Simulated assay, not measured.
Amino acid sequence: MAFDTLAYTQTPGDRAATLRADPEWVAERLGRDDTRTVPMWRDRVLLTAAGMPATPTGPAGRAVLAAAGQTALLSLDGTAAVFAADLSGVEEREALRLAGGHASADLRTLAAALPGPAAATLAYARGLLYWNRQALFCGACGGPTRSAHAGHVRVCGGAGCGRELFPRIEPAVIALVESPGPRPRCLLARHHGARPDGFSLLAGFVEVGESLEGAVRREVAEEAGVTVGAVTYQGSQAWPFPAGLMVGFVAQAADESIAVDGSELLEARWFNRDEIVERIVNGPGSGPVDSIGGWLLRAWAGLDTAAGVPGR
């Protein structure tokens, strides 16, 4: 499966990990006319009148960077730098004026209509700016932190501390669980708050001291009461909403018994391939078009995994 074309995985350019540690180089790039800005307002994308993400350059770009509460280098596009700029400290109207925008939008509502690299760049910007806003103080001593390495590190300014903070990533697993019988079936579950036919794959966060495969086995057992044997890695997806990394697996159930926990899940059922195809083609679909879960389900059903791919 072509997981490299999943939404939010195609960040273009060179992340310039070495160069971003040089404050003089970063300052010079912030002042250049060819520098491109990716302004965000409270995790929302700022859109032009044409409905495309605003990415001002030149004097307009420098005005955005000057007004930003936080900037972060995303990449080098050739020789031009691309910086995220957080305008969350001003009112939305002012943020739109600075960016030359006409409206703001949630990135996930735009992903299917954007080219893959554009969606990935916006997700990268969103995640990095969100982390900077959440890491203003040190978790060890409570002292204020300052931005370093062009927004990729924060350093505690507390007396005698100096702790370095790095962007937090929260890994989560998502699994397509197959039945052991001769007739292929997969497990879907309905969570609390889901619509009556809102079945989806099982997923959950990885806990401390746990492998990814172990997290799959624990989540499926805890929530659905299904014992899992072999767990096979399929692919991963950046998921900065706000700080996730989704890791996809196919897992083999030991038997078909189900005992939902009643806390996370309302019900769980086995579906055969014909039922999955019917759900995807004529029913509720395979889930959000930007999610790895839909890709796992389409691949298992033998359908085109490119359907609904952003930028295709």
Score class of each variant (00 low, 15 high):
F83G: 11
F83P: 14
F83Q: 09
A84D: 14
A84E: 13
A84G: 11
A85W: 15
A85V: 09
L87G: 06
S88N: 09
G89E: 11
E91V: 11
E92G: 00
E92Y: 07
A95H: 01
A95W: 00
L96P: 13
R97M: 09
R97T: 07
R97V: 13
A99Q: 07
A99K: 01
G100I: 02
G101K: 02
H102S: 15
A103N: 06
A103T: 14
A105S: 13
A105V: 00
A105Y: 06
D106T: 04
L107F: 01
L107Y: 01
R108H: 11
R108F: 14
L114G: 03
P115V: 09
P115Q: 05
G116K: 02
P117N: 00
A119C: 10
A120W: 10
L122V: 03
L122I: 07
A123R: 00
A123D: 13
A123I: 04
A125R: 00
R126W: 01
R126P: 00
G127N: 09
L128D: 01
L128Y: 00
L128I: 08
N132P: 01
A135Y: 03
F137M: 01
C138Y: 06
G139K: 02
A140E: 15
A140F: 14
C141A: 04
G143F: 04
P144C: 01
G151M: 10
H152N: 15
V153R: 03
R154W: 14
R154Y: 13
C156H: 09
A159G: 08
G160H: 09
C161S: 12
C161Y: 10
C161W: 04
C161Q: 15
E164Q: 14
L165R: 12
F166L: 11
I169M: 12
E170T: 11
P171M: 13
A172L: 13
A175Y: 10
L176Q: 04
L176H: 09
L176I: 12
V177T: 14
E178K: 09
S179W: 01
S179T: 07
S179F: 06
G181L: 14
P184W: 05
R185G: 14
C186T: 08
L187S: 03
L188C: 06
A189E: 15
A189G: 10
R190N: 11
H191T: 10
H192A: 13
H192V: 15
H192P: 03
G193A: 11
A194R: 05
R195K: 10
P196H: 04
D197M: 08
G198A: 10
F199E: 14
S200F: 12
L201A: 03
L201D: 14
A203H: 11
A203T: 11
F205R: 10
V206H: 05
V208N: 08
V208C: 06
G209W: 05
G209Q: 08
G214R: 01
A215S: 13
R217C: 09
E219S: 02
A221N: 02
A224M: 07
A224C: 12
V226L: 06
T227C: 11
